[in-house]
Structure formats: structure tokens, C-alpha cells
Simulated scan of single mutants.
Amino acid sequence: MGEILIGTAIFACLAGAALVSMVICPRLPEHHRQDDTGAVVRLAANLFVVMSSLVLGLMINSAKNTFETIDHNVHNFATQLILLDRSLRQYGPETEGARATLTAYLQRLVDATSLTQRTPAVANRLSELLLNKVGDELAELTPPEAKRAATLQSATQQLQRVIEQRWVLVGQSEGTIPVPLIALLVAWLTLIFASFGFRAPRNATIVGTFIVSGALAAAALYLIIDMDTPFSGPIQVSPAPLQRALAELRQ
């Protein structure tokens, strides 16, 4: 919902700037509407067009890298869960309770995946308690032989890696594009759209062009912001790795 509100506000700024400029321009004094004035306005707008293009390219690259990194970490997280379950199976039937708790934890992650959530499923506090419970159950085990002791130690280390990877995903869920940079880019685009309306003909075609252009530009920024937060909105990291891991744990 936050990204939608931001996109709507950006659209209002861009389309509104162009339409307001188009309405105000004919009311300005004659010397403000001369060709020399229009040429200077276009030169200033061209400067911000170049700067906006550079910043927009950097934002797209940053959002893409963030999305790909988190997607890779989710795959790694699912792999670590499978390996932990394999170690618990290898230990013996004494770990059935820990395996059931681990399966319940992963089930909560899969069920919590939603287009409307603001925080990643891995950050859920109740899910964290289930993961901690797995560690408590492992701590209560007393290996009767050296081989099982080594397996238990391996499982404990794998659980620690799972917990570490979980916190990595939680830390990466906030996004990396600074809000001031987004605000600055919107300000530049607003100025550019205002220059479009300066001395523009007042007809339905021009108005429609401004509205459509503002909507498309706002949609592009909305998608970039949404990609920068891969656990919320329509563009999300796929839960398929976690679903496959859950199927493995249930076998």
C-alpha cells in the first residue's frame, strides 16, 4: 500500500505540474512569454532531463541488484533448512520433535507470503520462536555415541547458519534506495513536466498526453521502489524455494 500511495503522489506531482504550468502561462505578463524566455526554460529542463536519466539508471541498477541478492539468499536459506532436516534425520528418531517444529516453522513462512505484507515472512516473531524452539530441543539431546555426537554438532552448526541467514534476509528487507534521492528525482521530473506545459497549446490532446506521460513515469518509479523491497508489493521474491524445501521436509 505504501508504494501505491507513493506512485499516486508522484503522478499527481508530474501531471499536476504540467497542467498547472499550461493554465498559468497565458496569464503571465507578455515579457515572460517571449521566445527567449521559452528557450531558457527548455535549456534548464534539458539539464535536469540528463541528470534524471542518470539517477534513474542508477536506481534501476540498485533495485535490480537488491532483488537478485535477496532472491539468491532465499534459495540459500531454503537449502540450509533442507540440510538441517537431513542432519536431524541422520541422528535418529529422537529428533522427530525438532523436525516437526522445523516443519511447522517453514509452513508458517510459506503461509505468511502475501502481496499486502510490509515485512518479510522470515521476520515474523512467532516464526522466530519456533526456530528457537528447534535449538532448545537439540540442546536437550544426549548423544549415546561419538557418531551421533558429531551429527548433533553438525545439526547445531547448521541451525546457527539458518538463524544467521534469517537475520540477513530481515536486514535486507528495508530496501537500499535512499528516500531523499527519490524525492530529489521527483522534484527534477516535476520541473521537467512543468516546462512541458510552458506555452503548450491548450487542447484535449495535450492534456491527455500530460496525464498519460505522468502516469507512465509514476508507474516506472513505483515499480523501481517496489523491486527495491522484494518482500512486499506485486514484485516479490518467489516463495518457490521455500515451498520446495517444505515438500522435502514432509517426505
Results as ranks from 00 to 15, higher is better:
Leu131Cys: 02
Leu131Tyr: 09
Asn132Val: 01
Lys133Arg: 12
Lys133Cys: 02
Leu138Gly: 05
Ala139Ile: 04
Leu141Ala: 04
Leu141Trp: 01
Pro143Leu: 02
Pro144Tyr: 00
Glu145Asn: 15
Lys147Gln: 11
Lys147His: 04
Arg148Ser: 09
Ala149Glu: 06
Ala150His: 03
Ala150Trp: 01
Leu152Met: 04
Gln153Gly: 12
Ser154Trp: 01
Thr156Lys: 09
Gln158Pro: 06
Gln160Asp: 10
Gln160Val: 08
Gln160Cys: 02
Gln160Lys: 09
Ile163Asn: 02
Arg166Tyr: 09
Trp167Ala: 09
Val168His: 09
Leu169Asn: 09
Val170Tyr: 07
Gly171Ser: 14
Gly171Asp: 13
Ser173Val: 13
Thr176His: 05
Ile177Phe: 14
Pro180His: 12
Pro180Tyr: 11
Ile182Phe: 13
Ile182Met: 13
Ala183Ile: 15
Leu184His: 07
Val186Phe: 09
Leu189Ile: 15
Leu191Pro: 12
Ile192Lys: 05
Ala194Gly: 15
Ala194Tyr: 15
Ser195Pro: 14
Ser195Met: 13
Phe196Val: 13
Gly197Lys: 10
Arg199Ala: 14
Arg199Glu: 11
Ala200Lys: 04
Ala200Trp: 06
Ala200Asp: 06
Pro201Cys: 14
Pro201Asn: 12
Pro201Met: 11
Arg202Asp: 15
Asn203Met: 11
Ala204Glu: 10
Ile206Pro: 06
Thr209Ser: 10
Phe210Tyr: 13
Val212Cys: 01
Ser213Asp: 01
Gly214Val: 07
Leu216His: 02
Ala218Thr: 03
Ala220Ile: 05
Tyr222His: 10
Tyr222Leu: 14
Ile225Gly: 00
Asp226Val: 09
Met227Asp: 00
Thr229Pro: 01
Pro230Gln: 07
Phe231Lys: 01
Gly233Trp: 04
Gly233Asp: 08
Gly233Tyr: 07
